[in-house]
Computed example of a mutant assay.
Amino acid sequence: MIVITTPTGDIGSQVLTNLLSADEELRVIVRDPAKLPDTVRDRVDIVTGSHADEEVVGKAFAGANAVFWLVPPNDQAPSEEAMYSGFTQAAARAFPAYGVSHVVGISALGRGTPVAGQAGLVTASLAMDDLIASTGVAYRALANPSFMDNLLRQVDSIRDNGVFTDTALADRPAPSAATRDIAAVAARLLLDRSWTGVESVPVLGPEELSANDMARIMSEVLGRPVRYEREPFDAFAARLTGFGLGDAFVQGMVDMMRAKDEGLDDGVRRTEATASPTTFRQWCEQVLKPAVLG
């Protein structure tokens, strides 16, 4: 039995899709089962509620061998610790109590870098990894850079203004990964379960690209000019606050983005084992272009 959290989210839904063809019993934890596709709802066992809730995870983990763990964003949490380790406390108690042997979690790059301790949401995510590891389960933390798919939040600006923004230096190369590749790695690990101990599994994408590189590729794929505009950190914070996001979340985002500019994602070398296959150009052709032109 494999338990999947966030089965209607971007990564969780793709993990679930990848596992549906496998010869495994599947159980999902979901707040609103109606959001599951009809074709999925009849093929999985459903536990309704939040995976931060002790009763919910107890019901979900009973008889389970493996768990896909992803903490959903909570932009109103009182602290970064509450967002990640606080949310995970009930599950951390339940893993050994119910005999869960393997956990695959969504985490971030940065462990071991000089800025890891001041990286906001990433620092909190790494502390969550430590909490899960302390339970004695075999744990694989998928250490991810920024997601290519985050650009989908800027589809309107790309389509209407030919502009996308970020806080990164325009010419600073950095890794990025497609969420579909991250989901594929998670599904593979959940099905294999021959692994033991605790490790980070980097998912780096196949290349380093700067924001200017991305703008050039988007322009070529979309057949229209796209340019990058760097957003100052104070403007970035003000914009998030203007959306009604809580102070802890905003500060965690700012600290994370500043740490990325200072080398947070640069600590792992790309190898055949750490590279994921989808190039940014492929992602633009297959995901971004339909979203912009559709």
Rank of each mutant, 00 (worst) to 15 (best):
I106N: 00
I106F: 00
S107E: 03
A108T: 02
L109N: 02
L109Y: 05
G110K: 10
R111K: 12
G112M: 14
G112S: 15
P114L: 13
V115I: 13
G117M: 12
G117K: 14
Q118W: 04
A119C: 14
A119F: 13
G120V: 10
L121F: 07
L121V: 13
V122I: 15
V122A: 09
A124T: 05
A124R: 03
S125D: 03
L126P: 11
L131V: 15
L131S: 13
I132L: 14
G136T: 12
G136A: 15
G136W: 15
Y139W: 11
A141T: 09
A141K: 10
L142M: 08
A143K: 11
N144L: 05
N144P: 01
P145M: 06
P145E: 08
S146Y: 06
S146C: 02
L152H: 05
Q154C: 10
V155Y: 06
V155I: 08
V155S: 05
I158H: 06
R159I: 06
G162P: 10
V163F: 10
F164I: 02
T165Y: 09
T165H: 14
T165I: 09
D166W: 09
A170L: 11
P175K: 03
P175I: 08
S176L: 01
A178Y: 00
A178Q: 00
T179N: 01
T179F: 00
I182T: 07
A186D: 01
A187S: 08
R188T: 04
L189F: 04
L191H: 03
